[in-house]
Amino acid sequence: MLKDITLGQYFPGETVIHKLDPRTKILVMLAYIVVTFCVKNFYGYIALAAFIVVCVALSKIPPIFVIKGLRPIMVFIIITALFNLFLTSGTVVWQFGVLKITYEGIRFAVFMVLRLTFLILGTSLLTLTTSPISLTDGMETLLSPFAKIGLPAHELSMMMSIALRFIPTLMEETDKIMKAQAARGADFDSGNILSRAKAMIPILIPLFISAFRRADELATAMECRCYGVTENRTSLHELKFQKRDMGATIVFLVLTAVVIAINFIPSK
């Protein structure tokens, strides 16, 4: 059932990028974030752009889906750019009253925009190519060494997978309840804020009731199957590093090396 619902923004596929071990992808992503902030001149971004373009091409995801990931933070990017543009001190290029643009400001603004863009493009590539379930699997194994110092790695990832698992169910439920109330003439999108908030009551009450009911049923079902009885649970899907994971890591290390090397090229 879960397969038929778009969750988050996962775009199913069978490509190399999809098949990579989630741990590889998470670690490479973390390192990639660091690398984006290490870039010191524009040539570095050309290398990053090449990396992203190759990844997107390999994953066979329509580029428009990747670019769509930028939309929600567009405002944030623009505000950051404006702040950098107007509030950096240095050689003044243009001035109008209190507003002034400096050469350094332009440089910072462009850098900030590029950094954030690459950050989002990269992370959305991770969530586009990795199903939420394997993402939590990956996180669990990555966090498991910390279990020794008392971090409940398994419980955390279980909570996360349950939460993720129930997003589509609750969305479906909300849709059903909204339709049922609309069929009884409920009007959700007219009137002022107060009357709109009031119109939510016929949706929220049944939704909460059903969420509690489902949570209760799930707890019973888990207990019926002896969840939590054994100390060391084994997993149906063992994660295994494969050749392609090695390949991906090498490609990424090369990219890192290139970026660092480029940093030494003096930019004007």
Binding site: A180, A183, I201, P206, I209
Partner: peptide
Amino acid sequence: GLVMQYPEYQLF
């Protein structure tokens, strides 16, 4: 008038 499946879940 439409009565959906399991309509008792819409009572509030």
